[in-house]
């Protein structure tokens, strides 16, 4: 229990005391995970919307893939991205392995199926007649999709929360493609693993607390955004 209390105190000290290294780690975690979430939105929302709105051959197959992808273990993604980015791998010439960009790519790969799957569910959860109503009001296909997504924005924000939560908290892919390099690719989760390995449990607890606070504040911000729009009833 002492470790916990010490950890809490240490977390507060690290944050308020403006520990430069911790702040670097926090900012990098945010940068990587938010960017990955952003990319997963750009990819996952159109995929999910298309799967919800377009009937085509093999759709069930693709939906199954997306749903499987929602539970993709981060380490598996890490292995795949590593294989791609190794110097002598297909994308090795880009020299991306052990950079924040590699971590962003891996995390985007983790979050995209989550966002796509939840977007699919969100759009399918809408009254099917809304789509006909939009079309009958003269909306083009693009306008229809855009307005349907707007109608589904509450569950879509939940999708963003889920995607962000998945990547900010994952460690397997981050450590594999990032390498946990101090000052470059060390994020909250990999730093926590390192500190546990070093036996610095107080610091590990502190970093975990910071991670929790971070995840909580981003999630809270999104949730506030979500709830604010709910009509009073």
């Amino acid at each position: 229990m002492n470790d916990l209390w010490d950890g809490l105190r240490e977390a507060i000290r690290l944050l308020l005391g403006g520990d430069r290294e911790v702040w670097e780690i926090v900012l990098l975690s945010l940068r990587v995970s938010l960017t990955a979430t952003g990319i997963s939105l750009l990819l996952g929302v159109p995929i999910g919307a298309a799967l919800a709105l377009v009937r085509f051959r093999g759709r069930a197959l693709v939906v199954g893939l997306v749903h499987t992808g929602m539970g993709l273990p981060p380490v598996s993604v890490g292995v795949l991205v590593s294989l791609l980015l190794w110097r002598n791998g297909p994308l090795g010439a880009l020299r991306l392995l052990y950079t924040p960009t590699a971590m962003t790519i891996a995390q985007a790969a983790i979050a995209t199926p989550i966002v796509a799957g939840l977007t699919l569910a969100a759009v399918q959860g809408l009254d099917p007649r809304l789509r006909l109503q939009l079309v009958s009001l003269g909306a083009s296909p693009a306008q229809t999709v855009w307005w349907l997504l707007r109608e589904a924005r509450l569950p879509l924000i939940a999708a963003v929360v889920a995607g962000f939560g998945a990547v900010i908290s994952e460690v397997g892919a981050a450590i594999m493609v990032g390498g946990n390099i101090k000052g470059e690719t060390r994020v909250l989760t990999t730093a926590t693993v390192l500190e546990v390995g070093r036996g610095n449990f107080t610091t590990a607890v502190a970093l975990s607390v910071v991670l929790l606070l971070l995840a909580y504040s981003v999630t809270l911000a999104l949730t506030l955004l979500q709830q604010r729009r709910r009509p009073g009833s």
Binding site: Q133, L137, W147, R150, E151, R229
Partner: peptide, 19 residues
Amino acid sequence: RALRRRVALVWQDPLLFST
């Protein structure tokens, strides 16, 4: 699509958008 824009349909449910 062009002709659809000369027609308006009001459904049994108002089906208003959440704006």
